[in-house]
Amino acid sequence: MELLKRQETWNITYTHALGETASWFFVQLRDHAKLYGKRDAKSGRVLVPPRAFSDQTLEPTTDWVEVGPGGKIETFSIVYEEFNGLPPPPYAFGYVQLDNADTAIGGFFKGVDLTDPKAASEKLRIGTRVVTKFAEKRTGDVLDFWFEPV
């Protein structure tokens, strides 16, 4: 028998409130090209990106701490497959523990030739020192910065 199909697309717009903590972080990033974390007083850990509370201790975070621009790679991936709505491959991104931070923040890695996966993965191996680079025109999101191996 004839089996029918129907194409449907979901396209809904949301306006998410970022709250005071993330708003302050993104304003510093946008206007001053600086990155900050927030300290969980109970554990002493500096959370980057900053959260208003620690999900480990369930206590509000307290003081701001400037972090970076140096840091080290904690993990990475190099993507070779194309996905709808994501950048054209290949690209590398992952998580970096910035200096003075206790957790890692996600961002793109640039300045590494990704043609050969093996060679590229050596350049990005865990523990590699990186430096944060900032875009000249910043809009206040995590794409305003990226990391390059030193």
Binding site: A17, L18, G19, E20, T21, L58
Partner: peptide, 24 residues
């Protein structure tokens, strides 16, 4: 808009725990 959704849920949780007289 002072709070993100995550922060709102943190607040309602703390209030309920306090109302019950216990901690997480």
């Amino acid at each position: 808009d002072r709070r993100s959704l995550e922060e709102l849920l943190f607040e309602v949780t703390r209030q309920a725990l306090h109302n019950a007289g216990l901690t997480i």
